[in-house]
Design a protein around this nucleic acid. Structure first.
Lengths: 283, 283
DNA sequence: TTGCTCCTCACGTCACGTGAGGTGGC
DNA sequence: TTGCTCCTCACGTCACGTGAGGTGGC
């Protein structure tokens, strides 16, 4: 019989841990003096302690370890736990790897630029959405305002007509691989509830309002631009640079989400908030 | 001015998070109504929020983020933080990678054996130690008991003579690359306080007690054997198998640490506790 | 009047580390 | 008598999620 201090030395663990495992029922002392409440352990309990430590070494939480300490653990159960742990670790490593890349890229940026970037690019997952939109090819940049204005009117007209209420912000998609100044293929729309899909028109031609589902995007890099509309290009450049320096490529159409401020207001001098989003994938 | 709910939607964060950041002083509302205590935010605060999110994305703790939100953060400071984060992440990934290997190896073991191994191998770091020991070559396995007994007597004689008290358990080193049954080159010793190094004899021949320092071992795989002395081989086999199947090789002499039970007792039928240790390195 | 939003506590998370305050045995 | 070991609370960790219980505005 060992007092807790001796046993903790034997097992290379802290006294506190032994008390903790006692409390959780993972490793009860062989004997507890009813007068002094001293805990007493036997050598025979050492293997159990080391079993606990070995399982802890795999990163299993203590309550799961508890279920694994019985002698008759069904094998499929054990296997399942380990497999779960495996995929968990896999994902964690992926995530931290990605973080590491981000940190390294920030550092390199710092070396090259000599100052921290004023744009904060973040990566997130974006859920599937239901969208009412129309697509149009704008001849030149100068034609943008009238084209967009018309699309905006059509959109809100459609919403009124079909009694559909938007459930999210306006979006603009640019279906172009690079910056172009002529023949800009864009799509203007707004997020609506999934139920609106019933208004869908099959094989709709260009420039007609239509409803469709957009799949989720696993990795979306984005910057939030909050300010004047004519400063968007700066943020956009930063976004594309970021994607390039962080080991990604774009894997879909660039979108602008009008987080605050409507398309109809955007020609004036009010500040707006847009999220510049770019679906990305590891190279 | 936005109420907290609207601002949380703008920023894609929970209301709770905004309150939390307020409490920590990371992002104070632009205005707080003194009557209702309602928090009000402005669009101008959105970039700051996204800055917080971007830094959080790198895995920085909120208090560090707080120090980075000022406009005039000294560049070296920022660089240092990011570099620290980088090495932290590096180590974390290493550690989780190792864990993943262990989990995977356990799973494979399970598939091959059809049952969980009764031996729990763990990896740890072992500090440098000061050792009094003698080395001897034992002709055959049958000669073990008398040789070890003699070494034991010499050891404790030496300790008495030099008035040195052991500060740790007895150790046996096997200076042999594989299992051999003849000419077993072993070293028997005990851990003593570092001050005992003054009794060191330069160029001591074999079979003489001597004091020396053993460097730390970064990665030591070990099993604890608690039971009869003649069952040690089973545990030892398990240890070597484990090292093989987990992508390691041994990188030093195998040691037995007598955690409980003295060498002199070990010939009888009392149970003992030994730690079978093997320094390892990734292949 | 009923929902909706906002508010302030305050507990829970995970595996202990770290005192605080007190008590038996050498 | 002085250290040493043991004991039981109980707080702190980190970034919130999740109620509980209550209050103003449409």
């Amino acid at each position: 019989m060992f007092k807790i201090g001796d046993f903790s030395q034997l097992g290379q663990v802290s006294v506190r841990m032994l008390r903790h495992y006692d409390e959780l029922g993972l490793l009860k002392p062989a004997h507890v003096d009813p007068w002094t409440e001293y805990r007493y352990y036997t050598i025979g309990q050492l293997p159990r302690l080391h079993r606990i430590l070995a399982l802890k070494d795999l990163g299993l939480p203590l309550d799961q370890i508890g279920t694994l300490l019985d002698d008759d653990v069904p094998l499929p159960y054990l296997r399942r736990l380990l497999q779960q742990r495996q995929t968990e670790l896999d994902q964690q490593i992926q995530a931290e790897q990605a973080r590491l890349t981000r940190v390294a890229a920030r550092l390199q940026e710092l070396e090259e630029e000599g100052k921290p970037s004023p744009y904060d690019v973040i990566v997130k997952r974006v859920d599937a959405i239901t969208l009412v939109s129309a697509r149009v090819v704008v001849p030149t940049l100068a034609d943008m305002p009238p084209y967009r204005h018309r699309l905006s009117e059509e959109l809100y007209g459609w919403l009124d007509q079909h009694h559909v209420k938007p459930s999210g912000p306006e979006l603009v998609f640019y279906h172009i691989p690079e910056f172009v100044e002529t023949n800009i293929d864009l799509e203007f729309g707004i997020i609506v509830p999934p139920s609106a899909i019933k208004h869908r028109v099959a094989d709709a031609p260009l420039s007609t309002m239509n409803v469709r589902e957009l799949p989720e995007v696993a990795e979306m890099a984005y910057v939030v631009h909050s300010g004047m509309i004519h400063d968007i290009p700066h943020a956009l450049t930063a976004l594309y640079r970021w994607v390039g320096t962080h080991g990604y490529t774009s894997s879909g159409a660039y979108r602008e989400v009008h987080v605050w401020g409507r398309e109809t207001d955007s020609v004036n001098i009010e500040p707006i908030v847009v999220e510049l989003q770019l679906p990305i994938a590891r190279i």
